[in-house]
Design a protein around this nucleic acid. Structure first.
Lengths: 205, 205, 205, 205
DNA sequence: CATGAATGAGCCTTCATTCAT
DNA sequence: AATGAATGAAGGCTCATTCAT
C-alpha cells in the first residue's frame, strides 16, 4: 500500500489484506478517540489482530496514522475523479464537481477531521507527503474551475478560489458545530455555489 | 483571567501575573511541540517557574491549553474591536475590518494553529466555551458585513460569508505551507477582499 | 484468586502464579515498610517482576493490599478448618482449636499486623469484604465454643467470648512489644486458655 | 507540651497555646481522613493557622502525629486517674475502674483508632515513647486488679488479665463495625465485667 | 511571629515496543 | 505468521518543607 511502511512479511497479498484491516479499524477507532487517545492495543483490537501482529506490519504507532491519512486522501481523490468530467468546460461541469466534492466531504467528515487534527503528529517527512496529496486535491479543483472559466480568471485567482472551495468543503465537517446548526447540506452547497458563481460572474464583467 | 481555573493562591495580582507568564510561555512551547508532546515540566520551565508552582495555578495540564485558547481569542477579539468602526456603514469600513482581521491572523498564526489543532484535547465543557468564543468572533464579522451591505444580503448569506471570511483568515496561517508559498499577505488580503466584494456586488444586481 | 482484581491477561494458570508471587513478595515488603511507604516499584521488585508487569495484574496499588488481606484470611481460615473437629463437642476439642488458633496467629504475626494496620487504606467496598472475612473467622470460633459449652453459655456470651479469643490471638502479634516480653507463646496460650475455661466453668455453676 | 518538639519560638505560653490548637485540630482532621491522607496544609488549616506557622512549631509532619498520640494517652490516663480510688481494695473499686475505662474508650473511640492505626508511621524512637505510655496505662489496670484480687492471682496472671481488659476496651472502638452491631455499650461493659469476675472468682476457688 | 508562594523529590500509572514461544 | 506477556521510560500530579517578606 505504501513503500514507507516496511514490514518484515513477504506475502504481498496478506500484507495488503492486513494493512487494509488495520486502516479500516483504525479509522473507526480514531473517529471515536482521536489518534493520541487510542492505544496500540486498541488499534490492534480494532483491526482484528493482536499487538504482536500489529507490529509485524508497522514499526511505529505513527505509521498507522499515516496509513489512515493516506487512505482517506486516496478515497477522496478516487471518488472525485470518478465524478469529474475532465473534458467538459461547461458551467454545469463545475456545479457537478463542486456539489460532488461537498457531498464527499459530508460523507467523510470524521475521516477529514482526523486528517486535519492529527497531521502534525506525523514526522516531518510524512507530513510533507500528506501535504502533497492535499495539493493534488486542490489541483483537481483548480482544473475544474479553470476549465469552466479559463478566460475569466487569471491563474492566481483560480488557485485562490480553488483553495477557498477546498477549505469550505472541509469546514463543513470541521466546523460542523457551527455550520451544520445553521445550514442543511443542501443549503450550504447551493449557497456556496452561488457565491462562487457570483465571484466568477463578476470577474467576467 | 478566567474563573474556570481556580488556583489555591489568593493574591489576585500575582495570579494574574503568573497566569500571564504561563500563557506566554505555553504558547511558545506549544508552537514548537504541540500540546501533547509538551510535558508539564517543560510548560513550567517555559513559564519560568517550577512544576510545583505550575500546579499552584492550574489543576490539570489541560487547563494550560484552555488558558492559551482563551487568551488567543481574547486578544483577537480585543484587537478587532479596537479597529472596527461600529457606526460606519460604508464599504470602506468593511475593507478596513477585513484587512485588519487578516493582519491579525497573520501575526497570530501560531496561536491560531494551536487553537485549531488542540481544541479537541480539551474536555467537552471547555470545548463548548471556546466554540462560543469562535461564534462571537464570527458574529463580529457578520455585523461588519451586514452593516455595509445590509440591504443586499439576507441574514443567512451574511452568516455564510462571514464564516467564509473567518475561515479564510485562519487558513492563511493554518495552510501556510500551501497558501504562503503562492501569495504574499498583501496579495492574499487584496484578492480575498476583491472576491468578497464581487460576491456582494453581484448579489446587489 | 479473586474476581475483584481483573487483569488484562487471560491465562488463568499464569495469573494465579503471578498473583501468588505478588502476594508473597508484598507481604515481605509490607512487613518491613508498611503499605504506605512501599512504592509500587518496590512491590514489583519484591514480586520478582517489573512495574509494567505489575500493572498487568493489578489496576491500583490498593489492589495489592487487598490481595494480601484476602490471602491472609484465606490461609488462616484454611488452616483453622483443617485443625478443627467439627463433630467433637468435648472440651478437648476446644483446647485444640484455641491452641491451634494461637499457634497460627504466632506464625502469621506479620501478616496479621499488616491486615490490622492497613485495612482502612482500602476503599470502603473492599473494607466491607475483608470485614466479612473477619466475621467468618470469629464465627468459626463461636461454633467451636458453642459446640463445647452449648448448654452453659447463651448465644450472646458465646459471641463475646469468641470475639475476645479472636482478639487475644491477634494481639499476640500486634502487641508483641508488650506481650511477648512478658510471656512465651506457650505461657500465653496456656494462661489464656485457663482463663477461658474459668469463664466457662463459672458460668456453668 | 513535650521536649521532643523543639520550636524556634521562645514564648512558652504561646507555644503551649499553639500546640494545643494544633493537637485539637489534628485530632478532628485525623478522625476524618487518617494521618496519611491529611496534608500538612489541612493540618495547619484545622489548627487555625498557616503552613508557615505550622512549621514554626513542628519540624516534620510526624511530629503532629506524635503530639496527638501523646495527648490522647494523657487524656485517657488523666481521666482514669480521676476515677480510680487507689486505696480501695474492694471489688466495687474494680467494677468502677473497669466501667470507667470502657466508658472513656467509648467516648474516645476515634482518637484511639488513630493511635492504633498510625503508630507505625512514627519514627522508631517515638514509637517507643508511645508504647511506654501504653505500658503505663496497662499498669494502672494491673494495679486496680491486683488491689482487688491480690491474694487470688499471681502477678503474671494479673498482667495478662489487665492486658486483656485493656485490649477489650480498645476493641470496643476499633472493631465497632462488629461489636457495636451486636452489643450496646452497657451490655458490653456488663458482660465483659462478668467474664472478668468469673475468671477471678474461679481462680480464687 | 506569621504568612503563603515556591520548590522539587518522588509517587503512581500508562503505554509503545520487544521477543520468546 | 501470530501471539501476548514482559518491559521500563516517561508523564502527570502531589505534598512536605523552606524562606523571603
Amino acid at each position: 500500500m505504501d513503500h514507507r511502511i516496511t514490514s518484515s512479511t513477504k506475502d504481498e497479498a496478506l500484507v495488503k489484506k492486513r494493512l487494509n484491516q488495520l486502516q479500516k479499524g483504525a479509522v473507526q477507532l480514531f473517529k471515536q478517540k482521536g489518534f493520541h487517545r487510542a492505544t496500540t492495543r486498541e488499534i490492534a483490537k480494532a483491526a482484528g489482530f493482536s499487538i504482536g501482529t500489529l507490529y509485524e506490519y508497522i514499526r511505529k504507532k505513527e505509521d498507522v496514522l499515516f496509513l489512515v491519512c493516506d487512505a482517506v486522501h486516496d478515497e477522496v481523490k478516487t471518488r472525485m475523479e470518478n465524478v469529474i468530467d475532465r473534458n467538459s468546460t461547461s458551467e454545469e461541469a463545475l456545479r457537478q464537481a463542486v456539489f460532488a466534492y461537498f457531498q464527499i466531504m459530508d460523507e467523510m467528515q470524521d475521516e477529514v477531521l482526523i486528517l486535519y487534527q492529527e497531521l502534525k503528529a506525523l514526522p516531518k517527512e510524512e507530513q510533507e507527503y500528506v501535504m502533497q496529496k492535499e495539493r493534488e486535491m486542490v489541483g483537481i479543483l483548480e482544473r475544474v474551475i479553470s476549465n469552466s472559466y479559463a478566460n475569466v480568471l487569471d491563474e492566481k485567482n483560480v488557485k485562490l478560489v480553488a483553495n477557498n472551495v477546498y477549505v469550505q468543503g472541509q469546514m463543513w465537517g470541521f466546523r460542523r458545530w457551527l455550520i451544520q446548526k445553521e445550514f442543511t447540506l443542501q443549503e450550504y452547497m447551493e449557497m456556496q455555489y452561488q457565491l462562487l458563481k457570483s465571484q466568477l460572474a463578476f470577474q467576467a464583467t
